[in-house]
Amino acid sequence: MHVHDDPDVESAELAARLSGGDREALAEMYRRWSPLVHTIALRSLGTREDAEDVVQQVFVAAWRGRETLRPDRGSPAAWLVGIAKHRIADVRTQRYRTHRNLQALATEAVTEAPAPDDSDWAERLLLVHELERMGDPRATVLRMAFIEDRTQDEIARALDMPLGTVKSHVRRGLIELRDRLKEVERVSSE
């Protein structure tokens, strides 16, 4: 299954509707982005039960915090992922506490702090999602540049495209992706 959404204009419209208190907008966001949120939670936490709890919490929190959605920050996907990241961190902390308490009871030993989320599932999967919805040729240019690690000259030749066009796609594409990650950071650190 792939997550696709419509152009940015429609996403911004959806964000505006949610901010205005339209429950149907929340339902539409759930239809579009619950697989993204769920997959991130599932990879980060490992169990379906926890992942589904996170999905529930994210969309409930999205509704409650709809005033914090900034339609000007692009697709609401990054906003939802930011909320998800926060919730996932909460579950991890909770798990660590439970684990530590059990350990303390058993051995009175202090265990190490929870492992930081070094797998970056939230960011990585959001970027996969963004590349999927970005469309070609920009997405292909970015994949060739960063996943296949090809130079812009090579890409231009392979795609039979002027070098300036390739450069422009890399610039705009990377800036757009960077902005999405900034949004995740902004929301998850609140």
Binding site: M1, H2, V3, S34, P35, L36, H38, T39, L42, A51, E52, V55, D120, E123, R124, L125, L127, V128, H129, L131, L142, R143, A145, F146, I147, D149, L174, I175, L177, R178, L181, K182
Partner: peptide, 21 residues
């Protein structure tokens, strides 16, 4: 920040097996 973004893109597989709740 831009380098980290590029790095994260490089670490993604082209398709993520999306799983709906």
């Amino acid at each position: 920040q831009l380098r980290r973004t590029a790095q994260l893109v490089s670490g993604t597989r082209t398709y993520a097996a999306w799983q709906a709740p």
